[in-house]
Design a protein around this nucleic acid. Sequence first.
DNA 1: CGATAAACGAGACGGTACGTCGAGTCTTTGG
DNA 2: CCAAAGACTCGACGTACCGTCTCGTTTATCG
Lengths: 204, 204, 204, 204
Amino acid sequence: MPDQPAPRPPDPQRRNQKSRRAILDTALDLCAEHGYGPVTVEAIAARAGVSKKTIYRWWPSKGAVVLEALDDAATPAADFPDTGDIRADLVTQMEGLLRGLFADPRVGRALTGLIADTQHAPDLARDLDQMLIQPRAEQARTRLAKARTDGGIRADADLDLSLELLYGPVYYRLLLHQGDLHSSAEIRELVDHVLRALAPHAPE
Amino acid sequence: MPDQPAPRPPDPQRRNQKSRRAILDTALDLCAEHGYGPVTVEAIAARAGVSKKTIYRWWPSKGAVVLEALDDAATPAADFPDTGDIRADLVTQMEGLLRGLFADPRVGRALTGLIADTQHAPDLARDLDQMLIQPRAEQARTRLAKARTDGGIRADADLDLSLELLYGPVYYRLLLHQGDLHSSAEIRELVDHVLRALAPHAPE
Amino acid sequence: MPDQPAPRPPDPQRRNQKSRRAILDTALDLCAEHGYGPVTVEAIAARAGVSKKTIYRWWPSKGAVVLEALDDAATPAADFPDTGDIRADLVTQMEGLLRGLFADPRVGRALTGLIADTQHAPDLARDLDQMLIQPRAEQARTRLAKARTDGGIRADADLDLSLELLYGPVYYRLLLHQGDLHSSAEIRELVDHVLRALAPHAPE
Amino acid sequence: MPDQPAPRPPDPQRRNQKSRRAILDTALDLCAEHGYGPVTVEAIAARAGVSKKTIYRWWPSKGAVVLEALDDAATPAADFPDTGDIRADLVTQMEGLLRGLFADPRVGRALTGLIADTQHAPDLARDLDQMLIQPRAEQARTRLAKARTDGGIRADADLDLSLELLYGPVYYRLLLHQGDLHSSAEIRELVDHVLRALAPHAPE
DNA sequence: CGATAAACGAGACGGTACGTCGAGTCTTTGG
DNA sequence: CCAAAGACTCGACGTACCGTCTCGTTTATCG
């Protein structure tokens, strides 16, 4: 009870990988079965055959567990294609984003629930952004920047706003319409819309 | 199983309006102070000087209380302006939406937290949509439809997609970037973008 | 979560007597089955069909529960007999003490475990003394004081020491020899010994 | 069930004496600082700079560690004096017991806590009795037996009861009154009482 | 105007999960 | 090749809210 000489952080070297996998898999499974909200650390531990202590040793919260599980499950943000055709490339990337993020069918409810959770957990929000959101957005930004130089889109295009125009509707649907993913056709339409707005020859 | 004597619903006539006001006000206050997540029915009851029973008598959950509080606090979705200038009207409407919804400074965290909560509560999702989201979206849709007939925007414009383009980015920011509201300038830019994509003469 | 306006103590009026009884009974039952040590608040709550909160609302610890259970179970310290025969009265009282305290066969292990627990819980020690130990000792002290005036025992007898001589051996056996109660014969012998030491005519 | 390969007991030869000392010392230190109850194997290991495994290799429980520490710390039960004066000898022995057992100021809380612990650990009870209690009691019994033969005390004296009369009050105070040791004067008084009861000439 | 039934405040209740702690076991690693 | 370091499972801790459920006590119709 006495002597807390320094609560050293755990040593990642000695980590039990089997437990880690069981925890992440179980977390996604439970999210898929009941939705993110009702999932509890207690239940994850129980089904994964792991003690709660082990979960809390490596993650600060349920959200952090699910985030890592999602990161594991997501197809890594592939290299952004650059075929010269900005429209085709954007479509490819956004399709890749959606199909990649949601490759694992268990991901859907987990992701939206997780985003919901970030409203009361700034740390989680930051991590989610850094691990899942930004890397993928960055690719699109890079490609758009190149298009701007190449003349594929107008020279004064606002890249941040463009990204918001592209991703906003997608997340909007996810969160406000319960995970109703955009179809490929809709994505094409979405990209067309945005590109039309960005067309180089529309001088206003 | 002598079918229990029908637990009659409470009589709205006898409702104590003072309690109702105290509850709604307290709910918003607490959301503003601590964020939506940490607020509990228990705390609302305590600070409002009301018994938990009274809350549960009239609302099924914390979310429902906050939703009603938001609806009360929001400037009612005013009549949509129709000056003939579709751009100006859209800007007006979106500004009105944002400034109206967020007129009360306590609304911000409450609203995003509430949206988050809908991920695990379909009923709440439906009510939120009906009470706050749809009425305002409907106005924009109506105005866009008129513009489509008038030739203000292209005849084959996809209204649903247009609405997603307009609102998507706004909610995207709210939820994924912690309530960073769009400025008036950004709203104008946003509307410009969308209208440019919908411009009647852009034949592509 | 906020606003802890004053953690008022619970209102004894509204106490659920059925829960109280179930808790006290279960506590003694479990002590009898497994011994005091292994009994947990969790187990008491579970078997009594009661929530842990209810236990912690009314008692600060397992020990306090068991103490109250013992107090309930013990035959109240009956009026001390005063037949004029100090020897007979002391025997009666000590017999009464032992048979009364241990009337309920579940008491044994509970009591010794409880005494053990007092080593790390001063509050519990105080309460145990006040509720169970002192009242019974006080009777003996009173009777001895009278005997001292009456000449039944020597005038300079040290009552405190006499009490220690009487009760010390009893508790000594209980604690160091695992609840091996003194038989009636042994009690008589014990009283005889002490009285012989206190005999009025032994002038040293 | 291929009968597991015999988990050979550790080889006492290879035992690290420095660890042993550190463990025993730390155990007493911690008992002195916080009392026996709150001390944990975890804390002993941490402060002694030793792994928990090392403790569990050589002792079955915290109690066993403390018992050995006490045995180490106690002045060995010296040879019982036999000056011919039974009163003086008993006083000497009981003083020796108390001052010897409690020579190390850290012993007090450790011992009472340990006795408390024996209530739920029969093995520990046995070991405590064999290592600390009985050896010292045996000396007194031997001396009393001699006195019985010599006529120092009555021929029909019950030695077991006499021992209980002598030691009972001491342990009674230790356990029920929080380590309030008897003073030398009180010990003399105690021995006098008992001897008066045992006096050979008291005819009753 | 007084009876009476409802909503009300207060708050105890059975639950479920929280996040922490220590027990005792098992594994990895370095001297 | 031992023993330190320490991660592991297990189970209990004491707390917080949940949503339900009495309790008296207002309060506000209606007979």
